[in-house]
Design a protein around this nucleic acid. Structure first.
Lengths: 214, 214
DNA sequence: GTCTATATGTTGATAGAC
DNA sequence: GTCTATCAACATATAGAC
């Protein structure tokens, strides 16, 4: 049965003496390109189930060559999730010192987050799967909590200004709202059934006006 | 720093010759109890990062003893996620042959799903993290897709009956709605800041009526 | 049903030539 | 900056006594 009991490292060509890449996918060294391939591999099998051998194959370089550029597997994850966090914070920072009702800033943050999720899909997906096993992951979680706190404050402002219903706890609302936004990473794929704009609009429509026709 | 750089298997007592349990947590063999501990361990570190050695320690049994009852680590995951799937399908099956408007059945399914998520939190969380690495995981994903299909049909019915807005794609709405529901597993903890009923009500309020005051 | 002991392979990472 | 070769630690899983 195809793929049954497949485990990373259970190479299909065990005769191969070492980690020689199957084909030449190399290009002049470039961290961005390396991270792109690495993130893809981490997503496909999960971080822990992906071996440096897998990364070697996927990047068309030997393990040693990868170790020449980064300290190890953990740093690769750290670099990938930092990319996601930087992009997400950029959205918040842009709205931070803007004028206007909080509810409008909130809507723009929802749209901006959705756009970042789509634009940086692999990196954000990795970020959302981080569990805090290592120091690097715990730092990422800490930055995520800071992000969530600022979101919560924004929702709180919108409630106080009377543009968001006041019968629900702001922290609870924030969690559910961005739980919905973040769930995009579970199914959204570029070129899939729904395009970016349609998803963004549906997200805002559902979040602000709900399922029932008005 | 407590737990810094902790990795499974990096035992804090490396002098220990073998997998002897630190304390006696054993009880007459019981699959339910075993699964409960196992699910907890899988959640804490992730499935791949949890070794049989970790499970041995956590259950107060040796690895061999665990292998006496199950074929291996993969079967433990299979049993755990099957539990979640059975509970979720039970919710749908209960509504399946009920009368009344689809929108009311949809609300009950949302509430029922949220209740299952909370009641079977570890198992559902594991289910939602399954990526399809092994045959057992792929079977779980297949059952999940079947579940999502039935949800989508229910949303479609509610739209046709005019009780859910018709300007949004039913599949897209289903994904966002249950993305929000499923996001509970990321933060809900029994005894935490919010209780089950509050969360359930907020979920339904947000889903059906949205953030804006009516 | 639990244990001790061990087989067998993979893992992340390093040494050192080119 | 890439390679070949290799390591020590750890993984899943099994054998067989009690």
């Amino acid at each position: 049965m195809l793929g049954a009991h497949y485990r990373p490292g259970m190479s299909s060509t065990p005769a191969e003496p070492q980690s020689r890449p199957a084909r030449d996918r190399r290009s002049p060294y470039n961290l961005d390109e390396l991270l792109e391939v690495v993130a893809h591999e981490f997503l496909e099998r999960g971080y822990d189930a992906t071996s440096m051998e897998d990364l070697s194959r996927a990047t068309g370089r030997t393990k040693s060559s990868i170790y020449h550029h980064v300290s190890g597997k953990e740093e690769l994850l750290r670099l990938a999730v930092a990319r996601a966090l930087d992009a997400l914070f950029a959205v918040l920072d842009e709205e931070q010192d803007r004028q206007g009702p909080a509810v409008e800033r909130l809507e723009r943050v929802v749209r901006g987050s959705a756009r970042v999720l789509v634009a940086e899909l692999p990196y954000v997906t990795l970020l959302l799967r981080v569990r805090g096993n290592t120091e690097g992951e715990r730092e990422a979680l800490s930055r995520r909590r800071e992000f969530d706190k600022r979101l919560s404050a924004l929702v709180g402002d919108a409630i106080r200004e009377g543009d968001v219903r006041a019968d629900l706890d702001p922290r609870l609302v924030t969690r559910l709202l961005f739980g919905m936004v973040n769930s995009l990473v579970e199914w959204f794929r570029p070129g899939g059934a729904h395009d970016r704009q349609e998803v963004e609009d549906a997200l805002v429509a559902l979040a602000f006006d709900g399922l029932r026709p008005r």
